[in-house]
Design a protein around this nucleic acid. Structure first.
Lengths: 206, 206, 206, 206
DNA sequence: CATGAATGAGTATTCATTCAT
DNA sequence: CATGAATGAATACTCATTCAT
């Protein structure tokens, strides 16, 4: 291994480290004050890098934010797609979707807090232009349509159903994350029963 | 009418006009780019007033925003409280709540767009510290608890139910506002049936 | 007395009242934050007059300040001239000057504080362009020259002597005003003895 | 010398040059219009730097002012302490103090003008809260007390004596600086004789 | 590729002053 | 003569971005 190779390796490692340092710092700031209020300076101040270095890795804070939420989005959306496509009954479809969604954030609370501080960035959120969120909803809608074609989900307005499920999911997640007494299973049971049988469905609190 | 009175009138009229001009301009900007990104300059640039004049009427952009959303919040919340308290059956409770909510924004689309661009300011939104939104949810929760005491709403976790109803309402509203083919009645019917009987409830599309 | 006369009288009274209100307010502000930091708004806010009214009485805050310090200056300077001109011995000259100076501010502490917050405005101050101060020093110099011609003050550099007396007077005044245990007589005795016999003059503290 | 070193040198030099440019410009402005009336813009306008650059070096105009007066204060105060502590007779004490004080400003007229335009910043000034000035007076008082303990200065009120000496010194300095015919030695001789023997002391003008 | 100083446009806010009423 | 709203210049300060080293 000649010197050239060695120093290139070191560079590679350094590149990754610097990128990570920026991402880590950015996640902190975004969580604390939100995307809108965050400045590039805020991010770089939390690293020991120079301000100019930021631009070797990202063009703007938005690009960092995207990198941060992409990872969340990609993993969660993939999981959701899988459980939805594997569902063979309506109850499976609903229950597994909720469980996967709640579990992801229960297991990755830092992602929850990042999303929470930046409500327009959730993978499910209806109310956003954010790429991730819209994509998540579009996929859910596709999956619902597919399930409908397979008679797993009964005929209904898919747009409205997608909206209702997505909106409820986010809000229930909030309630769960703020409330220690509600775990992912309880939240899933509640949401599933609600959407399977309606509010007046039997024995909500057994 | 003596001259004094006339003079005062002119001034009064002017004051009101200027205040309105600022509010109108602010609503536009808030709708287009959101509260966070809006600057006082953005607002004043859309009027033919001088920069300093802004501060004769408001202390900050937030104060303008509050003036704008207060009217929305107060009226809508009052209407919601009323219909919820007058409900005698669960179906009334759910259906009238949704109908009031959807109707308000259908009748005041500019308020919808303002809220849409600033998701943390809706009267219902779970995901926010904004006074209006949190207050709206708290009231809803109180009303649900009262209805539960009267056996109108069955026993369940009120926090989760509040979240689910609120979250679904906002998202269904979005779908409705973006989709000309869905009117307030259709949205209300869908939401009501969903929460009364669950997804698989009979005859979704008659 | 016809109505015309009555209303003119009222106007006169009002004029005087408004002027006084402005002067009173201005004195407060100048004392608290100094001439430099004071704004016209600060002054007018302490009255119940409208901002525009200020300009019916004064052109600027400096003009108010001048009006305020003129009264101080004119009275104090006149007293000083008198005692200096009436002095028949060097000791009288020195002692009566100091006593008059210290007494004025002891009797008019609000004038002291006004001057203190605006050090360039004292009637004696060497270190200022302020009209009053320079005038006070010029007069003192004239009086010293006159006294010198009458052999009351011995031959010396009048400029330097004026400076020394003036500078010491202000500083001793400060010490006196900050220190309850030193009254005008004690300050006068100290200053007189110092300038009559020097530091080592006999029994400074009898 | 490798390239790295050269680069750093250039940067260093530039930093020092810019800092100096700001200090030089600030001194000019402070001298002309005083600290109170000076704005950061006034300072930066006199350099060919951009407005933002100011804040790479100083936080505020006050910080610049401090940097400017600190050097004056520290050097002058140290010299004064030394000559006072080394004095073995009252005459030495007085004479050397005056001489040191007058000499400093005679040798550094730009510092005199800076202080003159900002009377609250002199090392001796009684009339100020400024750190330098108050510190200067406190030290003088300490030294007087020490000299009194050693029987160099006779018993007297040290507060008053400090005030008198300090006040006279500043005013005599003014007279000297405005008057070409009075040099530091003449001013020192006058002040010393005045404080040693009083106004009527023999042979004032030999 | 890292650095960090320089840039200058941009923002909130205050203020003296004018003038229609 | 009193009022107080309108004006717009002025100020302090921050920030994203560039670029010489």
């Amino acid at each position: 291994m000649d010197q050239q190779t060695v120093s290139q390796s070191r560079r590679e490692i350094n590149r990754v480290n610097n990128r990570d340092a920026i991402l880590r710092a950015a996640r902190e700031v975004f969580t604390e004050i939100g995307l809108g209020a965050t400045t590039v300076r805020d991010i770089i101040r939390r690293t020991d890098l120079a301000s100019g270095t930021f631009y070797n890795y990202f063009q703007s804070k938005d690009e960092v934010f995207e990198a941060l939420t992409n990872s969340v989005g990609v993993v969660l959306r993939a999981s959701l797609r899988q459980v939805r496509n594997e569902a063979t009954t309506l109850e499976d479809f609903v229950q597994n979707s909720f469980h996967t969604y709640f579990s992801y954030y229960a297991d990755n609370p830092q992602d929850y807090h990042l999303m929470r501080a930046n409500p327009n960035a959730d993978t499910l959120s209806t109310r956003l232009s954010a790429v991730q969120g819209q994509a998540g909803l579009n996929e859910m809608r596709e999956d619902i349509e597919a399930a409908m074609a397979n008679n797993i989900v009964p005929e209904t307005d898919t747009g409205l159903l997608t909206a209702a499920l997505g909106g409820a999911a986010i809000s229930i997640l909030d309630e769960m994350m703020e409330n220690d007494s509600i775990d992912r299973d309880e939240a899933t049971r509640f949401a599933t029963q609600l959407f399977m049988t309606g509010i007046a469905g039997k024995q909500r609190k057994p």
